[in-house]
Design a protein around this nucleic acid. Structure first.
Length: 281
DNA sequence: ATATTCCCCTGGAAGC
DNA sequence: TGCTTCCAGGGGAATA
């Protein structure tokens, strides 16, 4: 569920609770997430170590430790992080508990278990496998530029939406924000990437950045159950133009929003604002 | 190499 | 009311 804005909102909420805290205990549910949770390695690397920061790369949360090690978290579709006291009753689907030196705990809860908890020692931490090969951060104007995206699209027949959701091209854009970005840029999700000219590509880059920024400012998008570190919902969903709005009027032209499957996910679009085959510069 | 298809898992909503 | 089916913000492996 969480895309870049939601992960960033979690990061912001988690930082004051976790940064500069010493980890004094680690516990897990024993159930595997996307991969098994490396309890022994976590205990070896994290016990009595201080979390120096709460950082983000794409949809990954990074907890660098003062001994050079790194804990990596990914929320998958349903991952949540919440603070608790040792006396707080555990919730169903808690899979990791970090006990801190101030007597509090940070718990990782993930109903569908598509999330990830990984740990890397000081030598591995420079290039943890899940982070290698990731594309630029979309909010970084230098690395995620029109020139960059144009180059990545060149010669590609794959639909632009698939490419936008490819974390090797640009990180953090999932199904919601890919749909919203393409609507804002007036580009069909099925447009072959290589057919888009500089103007369209530039609109996509600009629209993506603008929408992600606004979503972060709104606390993220809560469709079913996204919550920040304080357990609060986001409210960007009220600003969504097309995602989940099939059968309702396009906010720009009034045409009924349609939905169609695309590459295993659902695309929402306005057929009038985002005509399928339009060659533009 | 590149592009769909399926699968991991649980639970809520919609359909009958 | 109760049962069944479908669907979901991600990502990677297995197929074409």
């Amino acid at each position: 569920m969480p895309e870049l804005p939601e992960v960033e909102v979690v990061r912001q909420g988690l930082e004051p609770l976790l940064a500069r805290r010493r980890i004094v205990g680690v516990a897990t549910s024993g159930l595997p997430l996307r991969q098994p949770v490396p309890l022994k390695k976590l205990r070896l690397l994290a016990h009595e170590a201080v979390v120096t920061a709460v950082a983000r790369r794409g949809k990954f949360l990074m907890l660098p430790l003062d001994n050079g090690a790194l804990i990596l978290l990914h929320l998958g579709m349903t991952g949540k992080l919440y603070p608790a006291l040792p006396t707080t009753p555990p919730r169903k689907h808690d899979h990791l508990v970090l006990a801190l030196d101030d007597g509090s705990e940070i718990r990782f809860n993930d109903c569908r278990r598509f999330g990830l908890v990984a740990a890397y020692d000081r030598f591995e931490a420079a290039a943890p496998p899940p982070l290698t090969g990731l594309g630029p951060e979309p909010l970084d104007e230098k690395s995620f530029s029109a020139a960059y995206l144009l180059e990545r699209c060149r010669g590609r027949k794959t639909p632009i939406k698939n490419l936008l959701m490819d974390n090797g091209v640009v990180v953090g854009i999932g199904n919601i924000y890919a749909n919203e970005t393409l609507f804002a840029a007036r580009v069909s999700p099925w447009a072959p990437a290589g057919t888009l000219g500089r103007t369209r590509i530039a609109s996509i880059v600009t629209a993506a950045r603008e929408i992600l920024r606004r979503a972060i400012a709104a606390g993220g998008t809560t469709i079913a159950d996204f919550a920040n570190a304080a357990g609060e919902s986001g409210y960007f969903q009220v600003q969504l133009a097309v995602y989940g709005r099939h059968g309702r009027p396009c906010p720009r032209c009034g045409t009924t929003i349609e939905r169609r499957p695309q590459a295993g996910r659902t695309s929402f679009y306005c057929r009038r604002c985002q005509p399928a085959c339009r060659q533009l510069p």
